[in-house]
Design a protein around this nucleic acid. Structure first.
Length: 647
DNA sequence: ATACGACGGTTTTTT
DNA sequence: ACCGTCGTAT
């Protein structure tokens, strides 16, 4: 189990005693080390169920627990998952103490924004002279405030200055939001952490919670926020067995109130902490690492560490300048296919981007060339209206008094808008009957009597289908999405529970729900850099490296947010094993939404400093306009007229 | 009074 | 491509 670890990794895995900080650079075997540590702890006699392992994504948890299982050769009852999913389990268990009903629902971001929208309407902000923040923005502001644990006015002034006029109205609105959630018996994602902190800080419950875990291990510690750190500290007030792993250079969630300060100041909160640094990089070829190190050299503030390549050789990264977005799309396709011919399967390659629409044109081009791909991050499956509609029906089956779900579902019916829907839900809450929404109410009744969640889901889908087909021109495609949801629901024990779990563990791509679709199938991965965290590919293509996009314009307000963008690029680059391609489209369009040709000439990303460029092979694609330039045509007189058409 | 279609504007990134 | 607003139809 420990044989294949290097000395530093082994020291980390077998550390005995107090707090441990593992500073693990990109590609240094962080996952291996953390898994080995869990396995070692179990082998030393710690019961698996007394270990809690917090990771950034569920996928990371799954992967690590799988490795632990392989190492220990058996089952593994470690409590593992994201902060949110572990919180969910604890909050369910202690629901009564927290004043929550037994079957409370968890709102996902979309649901929460909907609720905020309802309140926004109630407060009369909809028709105000000065534009009021939209629901999504309200949720962002609310969430950031909660996770930061700082006054609303500070958060708005710092991070949402264009909303400053509305601080007072928002503070009323947020209070109302909390009251509504209470009244509805629902909680949102931030509440999960708030309630967990509440439990952990309670004298009685907190003490027993602390005692139930011999070891607490936390992955990606550079991306925890203040609220999460308070939870960790409450879990380790008397006990000292805490392991955190992270890399301050990969802190990319500042906008979610995370701060690398927490990992940098770990030693102050836990003075007896030991520190292990992992610097041997097993992932990337030497030249790629050279680029990463050059980029890292530009960071203003960081734990100094120099990644050392363990994979000598390999080609230099290519820095490709192309005319525009569409030239970039073509070029990426060419290079992807070329790499495949060299033996790198599509699934060993990824296209990474700053924002999810960076790949719009590329997606069209991939389709045109029939190159299969899956896109992660960006617009998520669960945010599609029709999927939310079906989930709302699932929730209604679980809890017919779910006002929000009714409000959503009723408006699908002809002639029912927000006002009528509102009246119906008010009646419902006043103790009345179900809204007389004929087809849907009947389906819910029938589903209630059905035997399995699969059958229930099927019935509800059936009732919804005609409405969807009528409503959307692309109804057929949307129905396929519903089929996936139904297929996933077949494995659930309970549809309401299923809906809540989806909020915590949303499918990352539109294909996800169907399970790993076809393992034998080969497809290219498209992903935002954020969603690519922790992953690696043989070949990586990074799109749209021009100033304004990467770094994003909106992030250029403060030095720290520019630093975060730089770290984001660092994360992207360090995902690559053998090949790295960086693309700079020089001409970009002003109106990505429109179809006009208004464009400007962008500047390459400021992160591509001379030191960084020096580590790359520069490729400039010359694509002259296809105008004849050689021999000038002989002068002629040519007349063009359509007059004949008009008599 | 309410619903709905047309139109115009649009601060990333995600548990 | 989506969301919010506004004008018009029911």
């Amino acid at each position: 189990m420990l044989d294949h670890l290097n000395p530093e990794q082994r020291a980390a895995a077998t550390h005995d005693g107090g707090p441990l900080l593992i500073l693990a650079g990109a590609g240094t075997g962080k996952t291996t080390t953390l898994s080995a540590r869990v396995a070692w702890l179990i082998e030393q006699g710690t019961p698996a169920e007394r270990i809690v392992l917090l990771t950034f994504t569920r996928r990371a948890a799954r992967e690590m627990l799988q490795r632990v299982r392989t190492m220990t050769g058996g089952r593994c009852a470690v409590l593992g998952g994201t902060f949110h999913s572990v919180a969910h389990r604890l909050v369910r268990f202690h629901a009564a103490s927290l004043g929550l009903g037994a079957q409370f629902a968890v709102l996902d971001a979309g649901d929460a924004a909907d609720l905020l929208d309802v309140i926004r309407e109630e407060h009369g902000h909809a028709r105000e002279r000065r534009r009021f923040p939209r629901p999504g923005t309200l949720l962002d502001i609310y969430s950031r405030t909660v996770n930061f644990g700082r006054p609303l006015s500070d958060v708005v002034a710092e991070s949402f200055p264009w909303c400053e006029d509305h601080v007072e109205a928002m503070s009323n609105l947020f209070k109302a939001y909390a009251a509504h959630k209470r009244a509805l018996g629902v909680i949102d994602l931030d509440d999960l952490l708030l309630y967990w902190r509440g439990l952990a800080q309670d004298e009685v419950v907190g003490a027993s919670l602390e005692d139930s875990f011999d070891h607490v291990l936390i992955d990606e510690y550079q991306d925890v926020n203040g609220l999460q750190v308070e939870i960790v500290r409450a879990l380790r007030r008397r006990r000292r067995e805490l392991t955190v792993v992270g890399d301050d250079l990969q802190a990319i969630y500042g906008w979610r109130a995370a701060s690398a300060d927490h990992i940098l100041s770990f030693g102050q909160h836990f003075p007896d902490a030991s520190v292990v640094t992992l610097e041997r990089n097993y992932r990337s070829g030497e030249p790629i690492l050279g680029t990463a190190n050059a980029l890292a050299g530009d960071f203003k503030r960081a734990y100094r560490k120099q990644l050392r390549a363990q994979r000598p050789g390999g080609g230099a990264p290519k820095l490709v300048f192309c005319r525009d977005d569409s030239a970039q799309a073509g070029e990426v396709c060419e290079r992807v296919l070329e790499a495949r011919e060299q033996g790198i399967d599509l699934r060993k390659q990824a296209v990474l981007m700053r924002t999810s629409h960076d790949s719009d044109l590329l997606e069209l081009e991939l389709q045109r060339r029939q190159i299969p791909f899956v896109k992660y991050g960006g617009l998520r499956y669960l945010e599609a209206a029709h999927v939310k509609d079906l989930l709302a029906l699932f929730r209604l089956l679980d809890n017919p008094r779910n006002e929000l779900a009714w409000f959503r579902v009723l408006q699908l019916l002809d002639g029912i808008g927000p006002i009528t829907a509102r009246k119906a839900t008010d009646e419902l809450l006043a103790g009345g009957t179900w809204p007389a929404a004929a087809p849907l109410t009947e389906a819910l009744d029938a589903a209630r009597k059905a035997e399995s969640p699969g059958q229930q889901a099927e019935l509800l889908r059936g009732a919804l289908a005609p409405l969807i087909e009528e409503r959307y021109p692309d109804g057929a495609v949307r129905l396929e999405d519903l089929d996936r949801l139904v297929a996933a629901a077949r494995q659930a024990h309970d549809l309401g529970q299923f809906a809540s779990e989806l909020a915590l563990d949303p499918p990352q791509s539109s294909g996800d729900l169907a399970g790993p679709p076809h393992l034998d199938e080969d497809y290219l991965v498209l992903s935002t850099v954020h969603s690519a965290k922790g992953l690696e590919w043989e070949a990586v293509h990074v799109l749209a490296l021009y100033d304004g996009n990467f770094p994003a314009d909106m992030a250029c307000g403060s030095a720290e947010s520019i630093e975060e963008e730089r770290r984001l690029l660092y994360v992207a680059i360090t995902r690559a094993r053998r090949q790295l391609h960086l693309y700079v489209p020089v001409r970009y369009y002003h109106r990505p939404f429109g179809r006009d040709d208004a464009h400007g000439y962008g500047k390459a990303s400021r992160f591509l400093t001379p030191a960084v460029r020096e580590t790359c092979e520069i490729v400039t694609l010359d694509e002259p306009m296809a105008l004849p330039t050689s021999a000038a045509p002989a002068p002629r007189t040519i007349t063009v007229s359509v007059d004949a058409l008009f008599g």
